[in-house]
């Protein structure tokens, strides 16, 4: 009998908070690249991740209406990297306020298009009052 197929193992979670200002987006980009580098992603996949995370942070800044900070949570697993990017209004509302499903955004631009093209999975919600949240996953070698 063959051994059961190996499931994905959680490797760790990294949380980063940056000021919601353009000059800090590069920090998020480089931090996520460093995390992705610990997984067996190709150089091209890491470049995809860098751009996707930067686009998500840019969306938070542009949609944030003066939001103070952006939280980036990276969950690394053997098979994938899952990244949550949300502006501080989500944090202040707490878990109970999180919406379970995606709210489609009208007039989505190049940024969201790029994230969708570069990542394997994306859920997002952009609301001028409630805040901006993007949850994206990239699988290793997909």
């Amino acid at each position: 009998m063959n051994a059961p197929e190996t499931t994905s193992e959680h490797l760790g979670t990294v949380e980063l908070r940056i000021p919601s200002k353009p000059e800090w987006v590069a920090v998020a980009r480089l931090a996520v690249a460093a995390i992705a580098n610990r997984l067996p992603f190709s150089v091209e996949e890491i470049e995809d991740l860098k751009l996707a995370i930067a686009e998500a942070c840019t969306m938070c800044i542009q949609q944030g209406g003066g939001t103070e900070s952006i939280d980036i949570t990276c969950e690394a697993a053997t098979s994938h990297l899952r990244v949550e990017v949300r502006d501080h209004r989500y944090r202040e509302r707490g878990d109970a306020a999180k919406r379970p499903s995606v709210i489609a955004v009208e007039g989505e631009g190049l940024g969201i298009f790029l994230i969708q093209a570069l990542m394997d999975k994306l859920d997002y919600s952009v609301d001028p009052q409630l805040g901006t949240e993007l949850v994206m996953t990239k699988r290793v070698g997909a």
Partner: peptide, 10 residues
Amino acid sequence: VELGGEIDVY
């Protein structure tokens, strides 16, 4: 226009 480096939101 010759550009070098990184072109982002900043």
